[in-house]
Computed example of a mutant assay.
Amino acid sequence: MGRFERVSSQRIYQQIVDQITRMVQEGTLRPGDRLPPERQLAEEFGVSRSAVREALSALRMLGLVEARVGEGTFVTQPPDERFISPLALVLTIEQSEAVGRELLELRAALEAESAALAAVRREAEDLAAMEEALGDMERDLQEGRLGAEADWRFHDAVASASGNSLLLQTMRSLSDTMKEALGLYREQLLRIPGMGRTLLQDHLEILEAIRNQDAAAARERMLKHITRVQEHLYG
């Protein structure tokens, strides 16, 4: 095909999404056009096939492509802009302080209560999942990585420990948005000297309260953590 530019970045798949989106907007790719197979796309972009898969998944969420069994992936009609997908929401956070603030407000509402419920209802396997996530977060910090995936796994484990299936379902319905937002937040926050260790300590204190079955402390510490993030990002 030869139309795609090679990309390199920590967030490779987003660059692929941006490039294909731009090609659709400019008319280089039109509704009904079939994209090359994953292997060919990976070669043209100069990335791994897993990065291509992530990008295609995101493009499907945006409504820009559709997969047809046995045929391939095809460009669709651009979706109505009033309907914002999780990825579309994430892509506005970098430009919109209001959207970033609202997402953190939503997290505070969901996760403070999630932590309180987790303190009452957590099981041994829940604590093990939280401890594993924080171990990975600390390792990422030591090795200079963002640790966004480990961060999300900790918060997901807290939601799971809450024992509230609707709360967990709500959190997981936002998982793509949350994971990407955590990456954006941590990318900015870790530029502040010592902030990586501070954020890790916040999580350790939340875990301690949940382990001790102290619902009030768990709620307070989760809220304190999210408020800290908001204050440093938006003042």
Rank of each mutant, 00 (worst) to 15 (best):
G2Q: 09
R3G: 14
E5W: 04
V7L: 13
R11P: 06
V24D: 04
R30H: 08
G32H: 05
L41C: 08
E44K: 00
V47R: 02
A51Q: 13
M61A: 10
E66C: 02
V69I: 06
G72R: 03
F74P: 12
V75F: 03
Q77M: 06
R82F: 08
I84T: 14
L87R: 12
L87G: 00
L91A: 13
Q95S: 13
Q95H: 13
E97P: 05
L103P: 00
L104G: 07
R107D: 14
A108Q: 14
A112N: 08
A119K: 09
V120D: 01
R121T: 05
R122L: 06
A128P: 13
A129P: 10
E131F: 01
A133V: 02
G135N: 06
E138S: 12
G147I: 04
A148N: 14
R153M: 10
F154T: 08
H155I: 04
S160C: 08
S162A: 15
S165P: 11
L166E: 10
Q169E: 15
R172I: 02
L174A: 11
S175I: 00
D176E: 08
T177Y: 01
K179F: 00
E180V: 04
E187Q: 13
L189G: 02
L190F: 10
L190C: 08
L190I: 06
I210R: 13
D214P: 05
A216W: 03
L223H: 14
E231G: 03
